[in-house]
Every structure is written in structure tokens, then in C-alpha cells.
Design a protein around this nucleic acid. Structure first.
Lengths: 206, 206, 206, 206
DNA sequence: GATGAATGAGCTTTCATTCAT
DNA sequence: AATGAATGAAAGCTCATTCAT
């Protein structure tokens, strides 16, 4: 007996969209505060001011909600990194290059400050849940692409520009985690300086 | 009704040590296969061929077992990275430097191959559980210290050697994750080459 | 992962109140029959015709149910003792005094007959559990107050009326236990007669 | 298949008797401290310096040990009440009677001070366990008999001397509980005075 | 559309007692 | 006699999800 996919409402009316959004925001708040496992569906529904039944008419299950929360979070996260840093304008400004790298890294680090607890929780899931991983992958792909576009601009002679973009991105990402999510006991600026230096030399000391 | 320190057997006899070891190995296998949450204490006991009572006479609780498994895993993991790479001998051999860096990174990458599933599961916990994080921290501290000792040898002029060692370690670590744990769709050698290059230039193109 | 106040349903609808009541009555029955420790939550739920989940939506835990059962029992118990014995009417009737005392004691004794097994179980807990003790204390306070009001009426010259009320109440209570709960091998009427005599003389033979 | 009664050692050798006694004393201490349910057989054995196997060669099970502890406790308890109060000497001394009663009650109250926690724990069991009840009954029978012998001496005209002895004993017992075991919020002396008065009038104001 | 009472499989952990050595 | 490693039934409780109203 084939199981029909359970219908989930796709809200178009204003009130419904609002409600859905409220649930997502409440969930993010609670996930940050008590962790994923420490937050129950019923609590999310209650704190969102909807019944558990309504909750399940908007989201097939807890996991789906989680992914929705993550989606919206990652969109914002990525946007924050590049706020005021779009390629076109940078290319036009011809900035002092070391300073550009430092700013970009600082900007990436800063993006973790918005919801560090939530980011930690979700990053954990990235390693244990393939679907969550996929969401991160999509988001990171954009970030790497941005790095790549900078490399095209400033380090056009690079041998393997795709691999280069990836390792730069990855180095910044992990350093950001230690500094912003994992309480690494070292002044952030020291990490920032050396990372800037490493990337700079990688690009311009061929 | 205050409950004080529950006693846990500290095995000295051969049979007991064997049994304890068997439980740890079984647990690691099951954690890899079904994840931490997907593995129950009873299953671990059963698959280890001991009763649940015996299980709890060797480990205060599931979490403690988990940490034991991780401890033993990390010890081996770190050892594997540096197998045949002890500082003294390297210093003596005066190796071609770019090759040394490449080998070290390759060795770090290779260490993930032993138990990738388990490593993924545990890395996830590093982000959501402070006690697990501490275990990783201790292990990473040793790795970073090793990198630092290489820097002292080959890049003595570095401005901030501690920060430098950390970001190099962190860059390699995360790249290793993408390549070995997260199915990053790029030939490992490309990542390896560029990472080698980045580190090389960081050290020698001041 | 801090867990805050778990919500417990506070039933207002007829069906819910009924269900809650049914659980309480079933529990009382089972506690009488097998004792507190001999009765499991699952059994109570099953015999009440509800799922264990429902059980735990009405009561935070087994202990809370127990206290609820006790509360309702004690209310009835105390009420039974004084049924048709309210001070105002007694004062009006000017009863033959020895007869009044005997009736009161007999009435107290009789109250144990309703649920002797349950009373025994709970009295046991009074000695080992402070929260249970508190419930008994509240209930006994009312009984002692009643005795005191009788003393004010009939033995106004008493030196220490509060202590007097307490020891009279306590003497009756314990005698009641031996006769009704502890199978003391002596005709109840003999205990009743002497107790009546003791109290009578205490009050009127100063 | 008839189950043979498990053999329990009946120690005659000095060392064995000592060991048995040590277990009993340790058990009483632990029962007082953590309650019956809060004390495990294994803990008793360990703290007594014997193996759990040895423990079970001296006592058929935990309950039997408990009863042994209670037996020895009650013997001491009863002895304490009547220490220096043996009938013969009292009869000889012809003491001022009200003072004798007060002393006896005070002595009974004082007996609770030796191990109040343990007494509370055990009294609880008296109400839920018939075998424990029997032990208390035996001990109380002696106490009641003593009271009876006093009555014979001082109130020979009493109508029902057995019932009289019982209710006096019972009144003192329960008052003692409130004062010494149940934290009744009233100065002990007030209870003591009124109780003395009640008993006195009961005996001499016929 | 909305509600929220109801479900129940499933989890971790305890401890009295046994019995091979 | 003495040991103590081993046992395993059994208990309390959670929470994602359903579905009758």
C-alpha cells in the first residue's frame, strides 16, 4: 500500500505566511537556547502561539522545520559575510590588497557572532546528517565561488584556481570556528593577522 | 537519599581488561554504523557478549563509555599522523622542504581513513558537547605543538609562531574533513597540492 | 539543555476531569493492593484504560500522583471523622459528656475502616517522606483544631489547651492504628472504653 | 522440585561472630544515613569489609539482615526506656507518683534520641511489612507489660488493666514520635507535662 | 483550517542475588 | 570459607506524531 506523501500546506495567504515565519523564528531561538534535542516540537508550537496540529500542517516533521530554519539562517549568514563587498565594486576600487584580504576574513569571522550557539548546533548536524550537510554545501558553494572570483581578479596566474578557492575558504572557515564557536584561547587578532598573511603570500609570492 | 560516587570496576585481571576492551571496540563499531543516538546501551552490551549489568559495572554510563572510545581513538589518530615523522629524525634528514610539507598533509589526510564514520560522529559532538570538545582540544594541542616545532626548525623568523602553527593545523584539518569525511567533489590531490603550496609560500615567501 | 517546568495538563473539560479522577481512583486501589512500590506507572495507566503517555500528561510523575491520591483521601478521611459532629450543633445539644467523647473516638476509629490498606501504606510513607508528612500534618492540624475547640467548650480551665488537644488527638490516633490497621489482638470496645475514660478524667478530674 | 532452604552460616567461632556483628552495625549506620532503599547490599558488604559473597553466607537476603538489625536495635531501645527503672526498685522507693510518671515518659521520649533516623525508617516499615510489624509487636508487648505491672502496683482498682496499659503505652509512644521523630512544632516539655497530667488523672481520679 | 488529547515504542539505569573459582 | 564478576528483570519517563472533533 503506497503511502501518499502527507500534504503540507503551502501558505499563500498573509496570515499563514506570517504564522510559518513565526514558527521558524521561535524554533531558531529555542534551538540556540536549549539545543536541537533539548527543544520539543510541542514547545516550539506552544511558544509560537499555534497548536501542535497547526505546526504539523506547516511542517512535515521536526527535521523539515530544522532544515527550514537552517536555510533561512544560512542565507542570512552568507549575505552577512559579503555585505558591502560585492565583486564589482571591489574590482573598481582597486583596494590595497592585504587590507582587502584582512577585511574579508574579519567579515567572515564576524558573521559567526550573530547566532553562535545555533551555528554550533547546526554545524554538528552537518557531520552527522547528510541532508543538513547538503544545505551547508549549497551555501558554501556560493562563498567559494565568491572567493574564486576574487582570485580571478587578483591572482589570475594561479595553477588550480578552484582548489585554491576551496582551501582558502576552508582555512578561513575553520579558523572562524575556533575563534568564534570553540573558545580557542588565543586573541582573535593574532589568528586574523597570520591568516591574512598566509593567504596574501599564497596569492602573491609565487 | 544522596547517592555518592558509584563505583566502577577498575579491571586489572586479564579477562576483565579484555572484556572492557571488547566493549569499547564494539561500541566504536556500532557508533560508526548507527551513530551515537542510534546505538543503545543494551545493544552494545549484547553485541559485546556481556549483560547490561556487566556493562554498567565497567562504565558509569553511556557517555563515559563514549568518551573512553573517543580517547582511545584520538590517541591512535594522532599517533597515525606522526608515524615515522618524529621531529628529531626529520631535522637530521634535511629533507626537501616542499616534499616534507606535502607528506605531512597527506599523512594527516590519511589518518581520517581509518574510521571516517566514527570520526564524523564524534566531530559532530565536538560542537555540541563541551566534554567531548575538551578531549579533542587536548589531542589537537599536541598536533599543533608538533607543527610549531617544525616551524621553529624551518621558519624561525615567523612573527607569531603560535598563531601560525594553529592556522596551518586548522587549514589542514578542515581540508582533510572535506576530502575524507564530507565527500567534497574534488580530487584529493588537487586539494593536497594547493594546500602544500599555500603552506610552503606562507613559510618561505616572506 | 536545561529542562524547565514540564507542563501538566490542567483539565477543565468533563471528559478530562473524569479521566484524571479515574486514574486517581485506580491508583488508590492498586496502592492498597500491592503497595506503592509494588505498583508501576504503566500498570496504573493500563488499568485506568489510558496510555502511559496520557498518564504523564496528567501527572508530572508517580510521586505527584501519589500525593494527589493522598490529598483526596485525607480530605475524605477527616471529613468522615467529623461527619455530623460540627461544633455548633454539639454545643447546642449539651450532650452527656462521656457519651460525646466515646462517640468521637468511635467515629475516628471508624474512619480507618474505609481504606485501611491504603491508610497503612501512606502512614508508612509519612515516616520516610517529608512531603507526604506535610500532607498528613495539614490534615491533622485540622483535626487537632477541632479537638481544641471542644476543649474550649468543655474544659475551659485547662492549663495548656494546645498541648492538651494534641495529646488527646495523638492518643486516639495511635489507638486507632492498633485497633484498625495493626491487628492488635484486643477487642476494640475495650480500647474504646478505656480511652474514653482516660480522656474523660483528663478533662474533668482536675 | 522442592527448594531446599538455603543454608546460612550460624557462626560460632569468634571471628565469624565478630564479622556478623560488624555487618549489622554497618547496616544500621547506613540505613540511618541513606534510608533502607538508599542502601544497597553491596555497599553494606563493602563498608563492612567483607565480600558480597560472605554477606550472603551470613544473611539469607537483605530483608533478613534488616530484621536482624531491627531486633538488636529494639532490644537496646526497650532496655534504654527502662534503664534504672525496674519495677522492684520502684516499688521499694515509693516515689512521689506524678514524678514517676513524668520520668517514665521522659525516659521513653529520650529513647528515640539514640537513632531517630533509623527508628523512623523502621517504623515506616512496621506499617507496610508484616514481618517487621511482628518484631515491633514483640518488643512493645514487653513495654506494655511493664506499664501493666506499674498499674498493678499503683492503680489496682482499674477496671480493664490490660486495655489501660495498652492505651497509656500507645499514647506515650505516639507523642514521642511527634516530638522526637516528626518535628512537631511544640516544646517537648509542654507535651510532656500534659501527657503526664492525663495519665496521672486517668490513674488516680476515678 | 485548527485544535490538543492521546499514543506507545523505546531509552537508560539499578541492584538483589548467584555461582564458578 | 571466601570472593566478586556477572546477571537481567524491571522501572520511570519522553516526545514525535496522529486524528477525532
Amino acid at each position: 500500500m503506497a503511502k501518499h506523501k502527507k500534504q503540507v500546506r503551502n501558505p499563500v495567504q498573509r496570515r499563514s505566511i506570517e504564522k510559518r515565519g513565526r514558527i521558524i523564528r521561535t524554533a531558531q531561538r529555542l534551538f540556540s537556547k536549549h539545543g536541537i534535542h533539548g527543544t520539543t516540537s510541542n514547545e516550539i508550537a506552544a511558544k509560537s502561539g499555534v497548536s501542535i496540529g497547526t505546526f504539523y500542517s506547516y511542517f512535515r516533521n521536526k527535521k523539515e522545520l530544522m532544515m527550514e530554519v537552517l536555510r533561512s539562517y544560512l542565507a542570512e549568514f552568507t549575505a552577512n559575510i559579503f555585505k558591502g563587498k560585492d565583486i564589482a565594486r571591489i574590482a573598481g576600487r582597486k583596494p590595497e590588497i592585504r587590507r582587502l584580504i584582512r577585511e574579508l576574513i574579519a567579515s567572515a569571522f564576524a558573521a559567526f557572532e550573530h547566532e553562535p550557539e545555533f551555528h554550533r548546533q547546526m554545524w554538528a548536524l552537518k557531520y552527522s546528517d547528510p541532508e543538513i550537510r547538503k544545505l551547508f554545501d549549497e551555501s558554501e558553494k556560493k562563498e567559494v565561488a565568491y572567493v574564486r572570483s576574487l582570485l580571478e581578479l587578483y591572482a589570475p596566474g594561479m595553477k588550480d584556481i578552484d582548489a585554491g578557492a576551496k582551501i582558502i575558504h576552508s582555512a578561513i572557515q575553520n579558523a572562524g570556528h575556533y575563534v568564534k564557536l570553540l573558545d580557542y584561547p588565543m586573541k582573535e587578532t593574532r589568528i586574523l593577522e597570520e591568516l591574512t598573511e598566509m593567504v596574501y603570500r599564497y596569492l602573491f609570492r609565487q
